[in-house]
Each structure stands twice: as structure tokens, then as C-alpha cells.
Computed example of a mutant assay.
Amino acid sequence: MPTPVAERVQKRRAALRAAGLRPIQIWVPDTRRPGFADECRRQAQTVAQADSHDREMMDFLDAALLDLDDET
């Protein structure tokens, strides 16, 4: 006989399947791993540096920001 928790999980999964969904397993970076924050910072700096040299991108971002201001 399943435990009440197992029954709830089973019921929830059945409802999700009935809604047309299916379970998947994904692997994501371990944010607790030593060096994770440093690597994030390094990648962010690399992207920011590349973007700062892309005038077209900066113009696009400025226009998007102005568009957001117009909606308030």
C-alpha cells in the first residue's frame, strides 16, 4: 500500500500527464560548486565586453529601454 505522499505524487503526475505533459530529467550546473560564481562573473564580463563594442546592439537596447518607458 503506497504512503499518502506517494499517492499524492502519483495523482499529481497523472494529472500532468492527462494535461499532455511528460516528465523529463535535465542536468543543470551545481551552483554550490567551488568556482561557480567566478565562472559566472568571467562569462558575464566577456559578454558585456563584446556587447560594449557592438554599437548596433547598444542602439537596439537603448530603443527597447525607451519603448518600456513609454508604456508606463
Results as ranks from 00 to 15, higher is better:
Arg8Glu: 05
Asp62Phe: 07
Ala19Tyr: 01
Val5Asn: 05
Pro23Asn: 00
Arg17Ser: 07
Ala6Met: 08
Ser52Cys: 03
Arg17Ala: 13
Glu71Ser: 09
Gln49Met: 06
Gly20Thr: 07
Asp69Arg: 15
Gln10Phe: 00
Asp67Pro: 00
Pro29Tyr: 03
Asp70Lys: 15
Ser52Leu: 05
Gln49Val: 01
Glu71Cys: 03
Leu65Trp: 15
Ala6Phe: 04
Arg13Leu: 15
Gln45Lys: 11
Leu61Asn: 04
Trp27Glu: 09
Arg13His: 09
Met1Arg: 05
Gln25Glu: 12
Ala14His: 07
Glu7Pro: 01
Ala48Met: 11
Pro29Lys: 08
Arg13Gln: 12
Asp62Arg: 14
His53Leu: 13
Leu68Asn: 08
Phe36Ser: 04
Ala14Pro: 02
Thr72Ile: 11
Pro4Gln: 01
Ser52Asp: 07
Val47Ala: 12
Glu56Asn: 07
Gln10Asp: 12
Cys40Arg: 13
Met57Phe: 15
Phe60Pro: 00
Met58Val: 09
His53Asp: 06
Glu7His: 04
Asp59Trp: 06
Glu56Trp: 04
Glu71Gln: 14
Leu21Met: 12
Arg8Leu: 10
Ser52Asn: 09
Val28Pro: 00
Lys11Thr: 09
Leu21Asn: 03
Asp38Val: 03
Arg12Thr: 13
Arg41Glu: 15
Lys11Trp: 05
Met1Cys: 03
Ile26Phe: 00
Thr72Gln: 11
